[in-house]
Simulated scan of single mutants.
Amino acid sequence: MEEYALTRRDHRRQKQSEETSESVRLQVEEDNAKCRADPARAERRRQAFEEVAKLMQSFKKADHEIMRWRVRLYCGHIIEIEAHYTYTDPVSAGAYSKRCPECGEDQQTIVAFEPIGLRAEPPEPTEPTPPPPPKKPTRAELERRVKALEEENERLRAKLTG
């Protein structure tokens, strides 16, 4: 990954990311201005963010479900990110671009990546408990069963001869 050479596609994706970021920034500024002018709107937004935060906390995943990725950003720095193990790569997991912690540049697209591995090893599968051994019948139960079979035997013989 250290030797990766940027492609035209990487330059195009970075430019798109920067343009999208600027558009979002302008929309956020506009929404913030509306919220400053309307306290009721600001309160609704605050409540919506609180609800989203609670919802996201309820989806906490176990360490063995989190894949770690080593990614190279457009700026050339290499960082580590994490995503749920069901994603095949960090870009499909929504990690299209990141803020680089080394140079501070915003919206640095991911140009290359490699998996590191799960955050933790999956727990050992637990063996299902074997069913209890069949209970031995008591003498009284065996005697009742023998008697019932003898009666059935006699009934069948009578039917054959009869």
Rank of each mutant, 00 (worst) to 15 (best):
L73E: 00
S17T: 14
L73M: 03
L73N: 00
A95I: 11
K15R: 15
K54E: 10
E51K: 09
A62D: 12
S92V: 14
E19D: 13
K15L: 14
W69F: 06
R68Q: 13
I81C: 05
R9N: 10
E22L: 13
G76C: 07
I79T: 13
K61M: 13
A40I: 06
R99K: 12
Y74C: 02
E19P: 08
E65S: 01
E50W: 04
D63W: 05
Q57Y: 05
K98A: 12
A5H: 14
K61T: 03
E18D: 14
K98H: 15
K98Q: 15
I66D: 04
E65K: 10
G94E: 00
V71D: 04
R12E: 15
M67R: 02
H64Y: 15
Q16E: 14
R41C: 05
K34Q: 10
E29H: 07
V28T: 14
P90M: 02
A53M: 08
R46M: 05
E80F: 07
W69Q: 02
E50S: 05
C75I: 03
Q47Y: 02
Y96R: 12
S97T: 05
K61F: 05
R44C: 05
I66Q: 02
V28N: 11
A33D: 07
I78H: 05
E18F: 03
Y85D: 09
C35S: 01
R12Q: 15
M56C: 08
A95R: 13
K61H: 06
R9F: 04
A33P: 03
Y96V: 11
E50Q: 11
R46A: 08
Q57I: 02
R44K: 10
Q27T: 05
A62H: 06
R8Y: 00
E30K: 10
V52H: 04
I78E: 10
R25V: 06
Y96P: 02
F49M: 10
Y85T: 08
V71G: 01
A62Q: 13
K34D: 08
S21F: 11
